[in-house]
Write a protein that binds this DNA or RNA. Structure first.
Lengths: 260, 260
DNA sequence: CGGGAGTGTTAGAACTTATAACGAAGACGA
DNA sequence: TCGTCTTCGTTATAAGTTCTAACACTCCCG
């Protein structure tokens, strides 16, 4: 991506546009067949050009997938930033790294059909940084996950064989955790502190330099793992024959998280 | 599988043995490259026979994977049954379906290196059916999951594109849930009942005919989703750079489950 | 001891990713 | 305006994959 569509030589503009179109088709294909069913050849055929042409734009299947993973991460972070921007109180945590020109990241949870190109150059948080309600964050997460389960799995699902996340994506992951931490700090502390909080406060490479207290650290991790537990099983269809409504289970877990 | 290795004509014995060897190699391959990296050709080459020979034993890649999924499920259920057999109080729930000859299912959590052929004919619970401690079940689950993450992902991970679980595996899944329910009934009820319990008690297609009260139903599902949340993220390596010890997080979640 | 089921072989079709070599067409400096 | 030169898309090719088809061998079983 780099230059989205604005500037650059006409060559670069064309190149960026074709890359975007390739990713567009890749997403459609992933949406129906999953990440493992992604075929460069099929994409090329759909675009009316033949096979090896795609290698002018992506060095191979791996780079394309890496890019898709990056975009997915970015999309999730932006979605969460968006709900943070229009709710909650003023930001307590450190400001979210880079500022950037922040192309907009429209509030709606669309952001996918509208072209998979969330925020252009990087980590920028849209608008003024605020800390979102944990509940709103949770619902945004759920919406994002179920909007395209395969995209969710691309980020949090079974890791692809030889693939290692580029440092880039781990930065975005940190960004997401930071948002969670912000939201968790707004929560009133309840119950006696668990022994895990004592452990995690000494092992917080993640949350580097974040002012969250032990309880918030614990809460953030728990928030992540519990909601992921429900969402991943639901998205994978493991609840299908069981009868109950996954949304209610999600809500129950969220409630327990909020005042448990 | 069907006939493990005991009886049958010599032809059938040979056939079963070759099938087992194929699956053996398949597991090794899956262990290193994941399920998507499974290659029939490579297996054939490893076994010294050439390509299409494997199609005498499996109608295709899908059937092989289906079989592996089934074995993985079976292995998990047996592992859990094993801990249920040597701990806990007497069985409260309905007896676990079939009785069968129950080849043994040794207590150790090996069961994988020792040949991926857990229980021969089916759903049989080994020994006398008892209800396990929830904590022991949890630890057995964790041990099983981390012993071979890819096997865990085969069962609970990103679903493979066109694959639909045969009714067979959902039976085993039910069996596992039944074990969980048994264990949850042994738990003393705490806290006021969540609204979700009211919902789930009216939607219990799973747990058909199980005498578990609403709180136990809720607890069982929560047990599943929360531990899966931690385990799947850990197995996928999402905690790697973060610093804290996943085992402690798992323990913390388990503690919260036990008296939360 | 034959007939037939079962097993393994090679050949081949239809895919895939990926590289190499070639032609055409656009951009850019002189 | 005219080369030059980068970039693009093409075909051809190599090395994989799953999977079918046809043929041959072997061993079991009546």
């Amino acid at each position: 991506m780099a230059e989205a569509d604005g500037a650059g030589t006409p060559r670069e503009r064309y190149r960026a546009q074709v890359r975007a179109e390739i990713k567009q088709h890749a997403w459609e294909q992933i949406g129906t067949a999953g990440a493992s069913g992604l075929s460069l050849n099929a994409i090329a055929k759909q675009m009316g050009l033949s096979g090896p042409a795609l290698y002018r734009y992506f060095s191979g299947r791996d780079e394309l997938i890496t890019e898709l993973v990056r975009d997915a991460y970015r999309s999730l972070a932006d979605t969460l930033h968006a709900v943070a921007a229009e709710s909650g109180s003023a930001s307590p945590g450190a400001e979210p790294s880079g500022s950037g020109k922040a192309a907009g990241a429209e509030p709606s949870v669309s952001g996918k059909a509208a072209g998979v190109e969330p925020s252009a150059t990087g980590k920028a948080a849209p608008g003024t940084s605020r800390t979102a309600d944990l509940a709103e964050l949770a619902h945004a997460l759920r919406g994002w996950a179920l909007e395209d389960p395969n995209r969710y799995f691309l980020v949090y699902g079974t890791p692809v064989p030889g693939y290692h996340a580029p440092a880039d994506t781990t930065l975005i992951a940190d960004e997401i955790m930071r948002m969670l931490l912000d939201a968790c700090m707004a929560l009133p502390p309840r119950r006696e502190p668990a022994p895990f909080a004592a452990h995690i406060v000494e092992h917080r490479q993640w949350a580097e330099g974040h002012p969250a207290p032990p309880a918030a650290l614990h809460k953030a991790v728990t928030f992540w793992t519990r909601l992921h537990g429900v969402l991943s099983l639901e998205a994978a269809g493991h609840f299908s024959g069981m009868g109950f409504d996954p949304a209610r289970l999600f809500e129950a877990e969220l409630d327990d998280l909020l005042d448990g």
